[in-house]
Each structure stands twice: as C-alpha cells, then as structure tokens.
C-alpha cells in the first residue's frame, strides 16, 4: 500500500471532503460545538449567544463575472452566519499573497471587500497579511472569520423534519459555478452569466420569521444544491423528493452544463439558500423571501417523504425517478 495523500477531490465539498473531515479533523477537535459541522458554531460569551465561523477562499480566476475573490470572502462568511439564524456583525480579513501580485489587484479586491462588508451590515475589524514566494500560493488566498449576534425574538432552524414539509430554494442555482467556469475556460456565450454572490441575511431572516417550523437552512455553496440537501437527509428517517422541472436553473447555466458535461445540481452558488419548512407556512414564506433582494425567484422544489429515507430523489418530467448523491470528488471535464 502507498501512503494516503490528499487528493484534489478531498476539497470538492462532497463525500470525500466529508470523509476527510470525519477521519482527521474530528479526531483531533472534539468540541460538542463542532459536532454536526454546522455552518457556524453557536457559542456563549459570558451568557450571550453568538455565532462564530471561518472560511478560506481560493478562487481561480480572482475576478469573474458578477464578483471577485474579495466579495466572495465577505459574503461567504456572512452567509455562514446568516443561515444559523444570526445577524452578521464583525469580520476578519487574513491574506496570503503570492509574490508578484499587482498592487492594483489587491486594491480592487480590498475595495470590493469593503463594499461587500458595508452592504452586508458588517465591519472588518481585524486582519493579517503574509506574503509567500512566487509559486507557493496562487495569486492570493483570503481567510475571513465572522461573528454574528442572535436576535432574542428570532426562531432558529432547529425544528424536527416531518413528512410533507417542503423544500424551498431562494433562486436559480449554479450561477456562481457557471460564471467562474466560463471565465476560467474563456467561454464566450451569448448570455453573460453573473455570479449570484450576495448576502442572504434577509432571506434567512424572512424564512425563520415566516415559517412555523424550519428544520433545515443552509447556504448553497461548494458542491451545489444536491450536496447541501444531502446534509438534510443524512441518517434521517425521511428523504427528499425534488421535482426536476421546478428546480430553477437559468438557460445560460444549463447551456454551459450541457456543453461541459456538468450537472447544475452540483454547481456552486454564493447567494442562495435551501430550506426545509412546514408546508402550511410555505406560501407566506415564499412571498416574504421574494420581497428580499437576494430571494426574488424563491420557489418550492419538493418535499420531505418517508418513502426514500436518507436519500434525495429527483422526479423527472416523465415521472421517472433517480437518486442524486453527494458528489464523489471534483466534477471533472469528461471525454465525450
């Protein structure tokens, strides 16, 4: 046997990532606050509840249609706080910069971070800068951590999922993944696809305030809709049945996926949430989410069912069914 090494697929956010975290990180870090791997840890600071999270951003290219690594680094962390029900407050900014990065690029990125922080109602209050020799990093890596506060009156996404609950998605999926891919591959398509990169605090608050029960609330990021929803059903006595026609995917995103042989259900988003809420509240919640800037195209895409315990099943337009599983490794370009 050869020694096990880290493969690219370990970073895909799919089942390999999950296994890596369980087999390594959770062996060393066993805080009960970390168990279950929530987007943010819920901590108590001298009796005051707060949400605390961190994330690292390594996107290529640094600038893509609809955003850049700076905007991503702020909203990504803001969104991890928002989906546990917190109001994001303070952000840190740690930079690992490769020797040779044009200072103008750095300024553009920082300006973008500042705008994003303002837009999300947060402040960057601490930071760090490291420079590494050429070739030891890819232009710039950014780590941000964030702290958010809980409003005393707001509900939390901690209800128990019941059969008949519905799945809400706050807008079309895959925009970010498609925008980055098309920029990276130099694809010039007729319809420009912009990253959906945006803060989801208002969306999350609209869901939590409007639903009688919210049993699942996550921002859809790396690994896409299916990977995130798999978290909702992992080990659960219920499964999710999604209707393929109801899952919003922009035509341009579908085109890119057909062209490159990728599945939009696994493409990253940076400004979408997926939630499971009680069916009765659904119409009110959908309306409320649609009134928020990042949730205008919110819609219900499926429901929780006892039929497929622990699985996500998609019903096609023809009434056939297929399983959708967590991605194994990276989505790689196919030969044909």
């Amino acid at each position: 046997m050869t020694e096990k090494t880290i493969k690219l697929g370990h970073g895909s956010g799919g089942s390999l990532t999950r296994a890596l975290i369980e087999e390594t990180l959770l062996r060393y870090f066993d805080s009960p606050l970390l168990a279950g791997l929530p987007d943010s840890a819920k901590v108590q600071l001298q009796g005051v509840p707060a949400a605390f999270t961190t994330d690292t951003y390594v996107v290529d290219p640094l600038f893509f249609p609809g955003g850049d690594i700076g905007k991503l680094a702020v909203y990504g962390t803001v969104n991890d706080l928002a989906v546990v029900g917190a109001i994001p407050r303070f952000i840190s900014c740690a930079l690992i910069i490769e020797e040779g990065l044009p200072q103008s690029d750095l300024r553009t990125i920082l300006s973008s971070m500042r705008q994003a922080a303002d837009h999300a109602g947060t402040e960057v209050v601490t930071g760090d800068t490291k420079v590494v020799p050429r070739g030891k990093a890819d232009s710039i890596f950014i780590n941000t951590a964030g702290i958010g506060a809980f409003r005393p009156e707001s509900a939390l996404p901690d209800a128990e999922m019941k059969a008949g609950d519905v799945v809400l998605v706050s807008g079309p999926i895959g925009d970010h993944g498609a925008a980055v891919l098309s920029a990276r591959e130099g694809l010039n398509l007729d319809s420009a696809i912009l990253s959906d990169c945006a803060p989801v605090t208002e969306v999350a608050q609209a869901i939590l305030a409007g639903a009688r029960r919210t049993s699942f609330l996550r921002d859809v990021t790396r690994g896409g809709l299916v990977t995130i929803l798999n978290e909702a059903v992992g080990g659960a006595p219920l499964g999710l049945l999604l209707r393929e026609q109801d899952i919003p995917v922009r035509p341009g995103v579908r085109s890119i996926c057909e062209l490159l042989g990728l599945d939009p259900f696994y493409l990253a988003c940076e400004g979408r949430v997926a939630a499971v809420i009680d069916a009765e509240s659904a119409p009110i919640v959908v309306e409320a989410v649609r009134r928020t800037p990042a949730g205008q195209d919110a819609t219900i895409i499926g429901e929780a069912t006892a039929e497929y315990a622990g699985e996500i099943v998609i019903e096609t337009a023809f009434g056939t069914h297929r399983l959708v599983q967590m991605l194994s490794g990276e989505q790689l370009p196919r030969i044909c």
């Binding site: 697929g9 490794g329 990276e330 790689l332 370009p333 196919r334 030969i335």
Partner: peptide
Amino acid sequence: FGDLYRVPGSER
C-alpha cells in the same frame, strides 16, 4: 481528460 485522471492502474 478528467475522467481518465482517477482510473486506477495496477497500483495507482
């Protein structure tokens, strides 16, 4: 091509 990348040979 991407899908050949992960195909095991006799050892790796």
